[in-house]
Simulated scan of single mutants.
Amino acid sequence: MAARRTTPLVRAHRRRFAALAVGLGIAPAAVVVLLAACLPTVSAPAERPLPPVSSRWATTPPPALAVAGADPSRAPAIDLVDGEWAASVAGATGIPRRAVIAYAAADLTVAHEEPACAIGWTTLAGIGWVESHHGSYGGATLDDSGLVSPRILGPRLNGDGVGAIEDTDGGSLDGDDQWDRAVGPLQFIPETWRRWGADGNADGTRDPNHIDDAALAAARYLCRSGPLESERAWRDAVFTYNPLTRYIDDVATRANEYARSVSPG
């Protein structure tokens, strides 16, 4: 588990930018996740040396294998991704098969919506591991439908060692009507879920506790600023999900491990 990390920037901007915060890493890591819009004076310094190749960025894996004839704009995730492909990837990487389907379906859907983005399902898998161990943090389980239960909640964002974000959802998502808490396998702040929430399983609802919905929301969010094909563009996108170099490196390392696990040779 990563060392405990916090940022004072959330406290400084808690009222002005609370509505744009993305999420919070799982409780032991205490990783505050902010949208780039939350931090207008912060950017990844161009002069900072990039980390070693081993934790550089997410290399392009073999593409997710879509079911023939499936329409990414309509099909639920479970019907979009080839089951045998997902089982093979799960065996090679250790990612739960149901999570593989969610990440791959989000990749396919965004590739259909924004072909130039090139996000790669391994990037989503890297984030999913760092945020919640693919929906298994704290004894939670990911069932065959894609729902994570019990809910995975980050700590109360009350300013005590973490950022301070007053309640934005009346407790409807996080069960707290005083302070926000990050929710689900990809740890979305409630107000950000209101803006970016997606319906990846095509059931008519947007639920941050459902891995199909959360993965698609994360993919669309990361792709919002353009193609991720270069190292710098990829790192800048993940930086907006969580503005910490260690976080970016952890996601890159895990994403590259997954890519190597399924790459020929």
Score class of each variant (00 low, 15 high):
M1S: 13
M1K: 04
A3Q: 11
A3N: 10
R4Y: 01
P8N: 11
L9E: 14
H13D: 07
R14Q: 15
R16A: 15
R16L: 13
L20T: 13
L20G: 08
A21D: 11
L24H: 14
L24G: 05
G25W: 08
P28M: 03
P28S: 05
A30Y: 09
V32A: 11
L35K: 10
A37C: 01
T41W: 06
V42Q: 10
R48D: 00
L50N: 12
R56P: 00
R56I: 02
T59Y: 08
P61K: 03
P62S: 04
L65F: 05
A68V: 12
A68Y: 07
G69S: 04
A70D: 08
A70Y: 08
S73Y: 12
R74L: 12
R74A: 12
P76C: 07
P76D: 02
P76R: 08
I78E: 12
D82G: 02
G83Y: 04
G83H: 14
E84W: 10
W85Y: 15
A87R: 14
A90G: 11
T93C: 01
T93W: 01
G94D: 10
P96V: 09
P96F: 12
P96A: 07
R97F: 01
R98A: 02
A99G: 05
V100Y: 13
Y103Q: 11
A106C: 12
L108M: 07
T109L: 02
H112R: 06
H112I: 00
E113D: 14
E113R: 06
P115G: 03
A116N: 05
I119P: 06
I119R: 02
I119T: 11
G120T: 08
W121R: 10
T122F: 05
T122W: 03
G126F: 08
I127M: 15
S132Y: 01
H133F: 00
G135F: 00
S136V: 02
A140F: 04
T141N: 04
D144K: 13
S149N: 11
S149T: 14
R151W: 01
I152N: 07
G154K: 01
P155M: 09
R156L: 07
R156K: 13
L157T: 09
N158H: 07
G159Q: 06
D160V: 06
D160P: 00
G163A: 13
I165H: 08
D169N: 06
G170I: 02
G171W: 14
S172W: 01
S172M: 03
G175Q: 02
G175N: 05
D180P: 07
L186V: 14
Q187V: 01
I189Q: 10
P190E: 05
E191W: 08
G200M: 11
N201P: 11
A202L: 03
D203F: 09
G204L: 11
T205A: 05
T205V: 10
R206S: 14
D207P: 02
D207V: 04
D212L: 06
D213Q: 14
D213V: 09
A215S: 15
A215H: 13
A217L: 05
A218G: 03
L222M: 12
L222Q: 10
C223P: 15
G226L: 03
P227L: 04
E231M: 00
A233D: 12
D236A: 13
Y241K: 01
P243I: 00
T245I: 11
T245R: 04
I248S: 10
D249R: 08
D250V: 04
V251C: 07
R254G: 04
A255L: 06
N256P: 00
E257A: 15
Y258F: 15
P264H: 00
